[in-house]
Computed example of a mutant assay.
Amino acid sequence: MKVEIWSDVMCPFCYIGKRKFEKALEQFPQKEKILVEWKSFQLNPAMKTEPGKSINDYLAEVKGWSPDYAAQMNDHVSSIAAEVGLEYNMDKAVVANSFDAHRFVQYAKTKGKGDNAEEQLFKAYFTDGKNTADHATLLDLGAEIGLDTEELKVVLESSKFSDEVRNDIYEAQQVGARGVPFFVLDRKYAVSGAQQPETFLGALEKSFSEWQQANPEPLVSLADGANCTVDGQCD
């Protein structure tokens, strides 16, 4: 059963939501039958990459907050992240447009490494303070998860996977996502936000039960013997 997760690398609750969902998945008895697919979403498509700008100053500009209030909000989010074992260093975060980071994930998905790519991007942005719009950074992250860096370089220097990113963003509108993280289970149920693991677990149980009824597993034949068929042939 497929679970689709719309997220943006600059969204602090997306990384937190990833951890909480993973905790729920660990407790789910049929976890090996769950296919997770990461989907692209941009909170601010017009954002300019500005490595020298403080994330607090950026938030103050776009949200009308004071830098001090922005810092307080980031400290609060960092404390929530710490509760699920994540280290946020928001003072090091680089203001960066996420479009190329999403193209990086889309490419990684074709190699079966979409989840690895998301994890590396979140860590790079929130913990390590790396510029996730920088191609050299993305190449390093790709190498860390075993991607072919020469092939990835060709992708990044072109417009490849741009349509896939835009299609995901369009799909988000169709399924009702107005913010991220946004989890869609079997295209029937949605969970919005970084919910508690028990909420995710309940959603997995309900959606999987219905999916299993609609997709029964074929019986495995353990032995064949003499029998009669519907056309009257017996042997």
Rank of each mutant, 00 (worst) to 15 (best):
G176P: 08
W211K: 01
G225N: 14
K153L: 00
S54D: 08
S159E: 08
F182M: 03
E83G: 03
C14W: 02
F99Y: 12
P12H: 08
V154Q: 13
N97M: 02
K111F: 02
K23A: 01
N97F: 14
F200R: 00
L147R: 08
S207D: 04
Q106N: 07
E157S: 11
A96T: 10
A70W: 04
Q173A: 08
D91L: 04
N89K: 10
L141Q: 10
S158Y: 06
T127W: 05
G85F: 00
K111Y: 03
W38M: 04
F161K: 04
M90E: 05
K31I: 00
I5Q: 04
D235V: 13
R19E: 12
A108L: 10
Y170R: 12
P29R: 02
T110P: 06
S66H: 14
A194Q: 13
K160Q: 14
E22N: 08
W211A: 00
T132N: 13
I169T: 10
N89R: 13
Q120G: 15
V165T: 01
L35Q: 13
R166E: 11
V184M: 10
K20G: 00
F28M: 02
N167H: 07
T110S: 12
Y58S: 00
L219Q: 13
I80L: 14
P181H: 00
N56R: 13
S66K: 10
G146N: 12
D231H: 11
G129C: 06
E32F: 00
E50M: 11
K48L: 08
D140P: 07
S159V: 12
P181E: 09
I80M: 12
L204G: 07
F104Y: 11
E144A: 12
S162I: 03
Q106T: 04
F161C: 12
E119K: 07
A82F: 05
A143Q: 09
V175W: 09
L222Y: 02
F13K: 08
A194S: 15
P197G: 05
K113G: 03
N167G: 06
A24H: 02
A101N: 09
E205P: 01
G142R: 03
D235P: 12
M10D: 02
L59I: 11
I34G: 00
Q173V: 04
C234I: 15
A124G: 09
